[in-house]
Design a protein around this nucleic acid. Structure first.
Lengths: 127, 127
DNA sequence: AAGCTGTATCGAAGTTCATCTATGCAGCGT
DNA sequence: ACGCTGCATAGATGAACTTCGATACAGCTT
């Protein structure tokens, strides 16, 4: 439960650290900056739909050429959003011949889910 | 510029809907817009730290007067960030006398966690 | 080699955002 | 009633973001 492709960024630090915080102990400044970058990547409707399409496609790869026509946006714009998702560590890309395929990095969404999950901590029940 | 008064917000629609999507089926446009607003609220280091402080305090309420001094920002700026978190449905506020207290709305973070959780789909066993 | 197609990068334009100071409002104490 | 303190709102400013068209790059195909 430790190693994974870190790909383009380092910001998975805050996400992959031993234990999720946020709802358990006060986030430190550095952690907050890293985490915010991931959430910011999710903070756009286009990117959310892209991520959703990538996560839910048949097989676990999608060709950019299948993503782009689903939006009313230019190809460079889609490319830009994919780049942000990639830099956030949410997806990875592979070029195969002419086409580029994107796939979800489930470890990252798993970490986010964990961070947002409040484990009913005993201390809380106490006092 | 004019529709700021959403009350505490309606965007829980996408979050509270019957079943989380995102990683399970392609997000529709409207859902993506609502969800993005919540993630966007989390996409700032100051707001993440605020949320974390609110979520992890003793008791489950924090006075604004305890939050503000923790940052190197003006009081109006903190107030603004708290407002965004509130409009995203992540926290709620109560005025008691002179002071205003904020508390986490755990249902919202729960929904986000669920949305980011992939139910191990059968196809996955194969790969 | 030359041309074609798919994708990424560049630079510009308009919009949104984070932050500040100044100000308003609410409740408390004298 | 008056002033003080805590918090919110208003307006301004500079930075960041989204989007575009133009262009560069990569890999086929002929």
């Amino acid at each position: 439960m430790s190693n994974q492709e870190v790909g383009v960024t380092d910001l998975q630090g805050a996400v992959t650290d031993c234990c999720p915080r946020l709802l358990k102990e006060p986030l430190e400044d550095g952690e907050a900056v890293e985490l915010a970058r991931v959430f910011k990547a999710l903070g756009d409707p286009v990117r959310l739909r892209l991520l959703s399409m990538i996560a839910t496609c048949d097989g676990d790869e999608v060709c950019v050429c299948d993503l782009t026509p689903a939006f009313d946006l230019s190809q460079p714009t889609i490319s830009h959003h994919l780049k942000l998702l990639r830099e956030a560590g949410l997806i990875s890309s592979v070029r195969r011949g002419t086409w580029v395929y994107y796939r979800l990095i489930p470890e990252t969404t798993d970490r986010l889910a964990a961070i947002l999950t409040r484990s009913l901590k005993p201390e809380e029940a106490g006092s």
